[in-house]
């Protein structure tokens, strides 16, 4: 293994081991979206049918891909938040003086967080029949590929903020005030098709809308009639790839410039 590969691998591995030993994190990042899904999905099923929602599915099913997205988002937040304290008075101090490039550090962290989010996402994927979605092998494969992409983007965004901000409180504040609305307006909660024009514009400009579309298309691979009006597959994947790449670039840049220590 090359020196850089070993460095990436070891930082990836650290994320995995830490996660395994922090059961509350595993449960927290999984159970909270699950509760959302159960309460909102089943709660709204009878009474709530947003306009633009494809016919033939109920709200539980509509909301399900959105909840997967939320699982990925929460796990990414949990995975990256430790960076805030870690680089100033914890483990990352040692990494910062080691002979390792900052973008290598970010790569290891992001891949670790992506793996964790993907794991949580896959556990959630098992619940698809509860939503009334019966996944083909191809659909599972495509969904995992899309989840990987989005999980990676979320982790890079998390790192981008964690390498810059000085307190975990600030980190939470930013993540909640930026990422949750982005999630909310990605088509996770209601389809763009039924929204007023100004809101539809915001949703079209939201990169996550295309990630959401890619995930929906993957879950319903082979049965496009259940999708309703969504951005096309090629556009969705292309924009998601660009989104993840941009997030990675920014995360590496912020980490590069981070002085690690406050005055």
């Amino acid at each position: 293994m090359s020196a850089v590969a070993l460095q990436v691998w070891t930082l990836w591995w650290r994320e995995i081991v830490r996660f395994r030993r922090q059961r509350s994190v595993i449960i927290g990042s999984f159970v909270q979206p699950l509760i959302f899904w159960v309460l909102i999905g089943w709660g709204f099923r009878a009474s709530f049918k947003p306009s633009g929602m494809p016919s033939g599915i109920d709200y539980v099913q509509y909301f399900y891909p959105g909840v997967i997205m939320l699982v990925l988002l929460f796990t990414a937040i949990f995975a990256t938040i430790a960076t805030v304290d870690d680089r100033r008075q914890g483990f990352l101090q040692g990494v910062l003086v080691a002979p390792i490039a900052r973008d290598t550090v970010v790569a290891g962290q992001a891949l670790g967080g992506t793996t964790l989010a993907l794991f949580q996402g896959c556990v959630f994927l098992v619940l698809a029949p509860l939503a009334g979605i019966h996944l083909s092998a191809a659909a599972v494969g495509a969904s995992i590929a899309v989840m990987t992409l989005i999980a990676f983007a979320f982790n890079c965004i998390g790192l981008m903020i964690a390498w810059r901000i000085e307190s975990t409180r600030g980190f939470h504040l930013i993540m909640n005030s930026i990422l949750v609305p982005i999630w909310f307006l990605s088509g996770a909660f209601f389809p763009a098709a039924g929204a007023p024009l100004w809101l539809r514009w915001i949703m079209w400009l939201n990169p996550l809308t295309y990630g959401m579309a890619a995930l929906r298309r993957s879950l319903y691979l082979g049965e496009p009639h259940t999708l309703g009006a969504l951005p096309g597959a090629a556009v969705s994947v292309a924009i998601s790839v660009a989104f993840a790449a941009a997030a990675m670039w920014f995360a590496a840049r912020v980490a590069q410039r981070s002085q690690a220590v406050a005055a």
Binding site: A3, L6, Q7, W9, T10, L11, W13, R14, V17, R18, R21, Q22, R88, Q89, G90, F91, L92, Q93, G94, V95, A98, P99, I100
Partner: peptide, 24 residues
Amino acid sequence: FQSPSLDGKLTVAENLAIHGHLYG
């Protein structure tokens, strides 16, 4: 460092292993 740079959630040996990997 003045503040601990060990990862509390890792064992002593694991902490050293990561450090070793970072240094090749």
